[in-house]
């Protein structure tokens, strides 16, 4: 059978973000990266369709933030966003799960964590559990989609990548390793439509119970030296942070120096094999 690349139906879940300094509503960084990924996918696979989905209250502040996503899709023909309208403080997961189950897309892209509320990063996992779909976190790129199987690149720490094959439909979450979001165009964002549908809301009572305060700085861990001898404790307290414990090679030939460096690099295991 000839591998055949056909378009995929993608739904990007978007949320209202929070500017880290001013605290104003904005498009959330990770969700915007997710949309960028979807737009890149659409450009490569003709016939793909992208839907934008948000569940939450319909207010002026959140609307301007959501239009930030629509400003990114200028020129791609995508000019509407589905808004599942809920009361403030409602749980978004049942509404989203119901909407996705009614018209299942092939790929759902979300950010890893919300920038408001609890921000626990549970939403993609809860949706995967509800729908029974596989989930891949930390997505960096979609390499190809053929015959209902997607080949993805997952980001690992230190810039490393891992290649995965996932059977569709699937949920993927993106974090800072995904491609950076393009600029949002103001005009198309103003002209785009928000299709609001009111849905039944289940209030998140547990979350409302928990006290929330602005994050305070975490205490720095002190370096405690447990030693029987007063001399050792004094030395540890009085020593400078980096106290010349290193080895210095002076007056050696460059071959000997290279040998020593090579040995250290080999021990650390950073040289490619």
């Amino acid at each position: 059978m000839r591998p055949e690349e056909q378009g995929v139906e993608v739904v990007v879940l978007v949320s209202v973000g929070r500017h880290p300094i001013t605290g104003r509503a904005r498009r959330a960084d990770q969700d915007a990266r997710g949309l960028e990924l979807a737009l890149g996918l659409e450009a490569r696979l003709p016939g793909s369709r992208i839907g934008l989905l948000h569940a939450g209250p319909h207010r002026e502040e959140s609307e301007s933030a959501l239009r930030g996503y629509l400003g990114m899709t200028a020129g791609t023909g995508l000019d509407s966003l589905t808004l599942l309208e809920q009361a403030e403080g409602a749980d978004a997961i049942p509404a989203l799960a119901e909407h996705l189950a009614a018209a299942p897309p092939q790929l759902v892209i979300t950010g890893a964590r919300a920038e408001r509320g609890e921000g626990s990063g549970l939403l993609p996992y809860a949706l995967a559990e509800h729908l029974g779909w596989p989930l891949v976190n930390g997505l960096a790129a979609v390499e190809k989609v053929e015959n209902g199987v997607a080949t993805l690149l997952q980001a690992l720490p230190r810039g490393q990548r891992r290649r995965l094959k996932v059977r569709l439909p699937a949920i993927v979450s993106v974090d800072a390793a995904a491609p950076a979001a393009r600029q949002s165009a103001f005009g198309p964002a103003r002209r785009a439509e928000l299709e609001a549908t009111p849905v039944a809301a289940e209030l998140d009572l547990e979350l409302a119970e928990w006290p929330m305060v602005p994050a305070r700085k975490r205490p720095k861990r002190l370096k405690i030296v447990k030693s029987a001898s007063a001399r050792d404790r004094f030395k540890a307290a009085a020593a400078k942070a980096e106290g010349g414990s290193g080895q210095v090679l002076e007056g050696v030939s460059s071959e000997q120096a290279a040998e020593a460096i090579f040995k250290l690099l080999r021990e650390e295991g950073v040289l490619p094999r």
Partner: peptide
Amino acid sequence: IKRADLAVIGDAGEILSALVAKV
């Protein structure tokens, strides 16, 4: 040199080329 765990006193270009040759 004071910060380094391994410090080599010498010309950077020469030692790098020796290291490259070694690798």
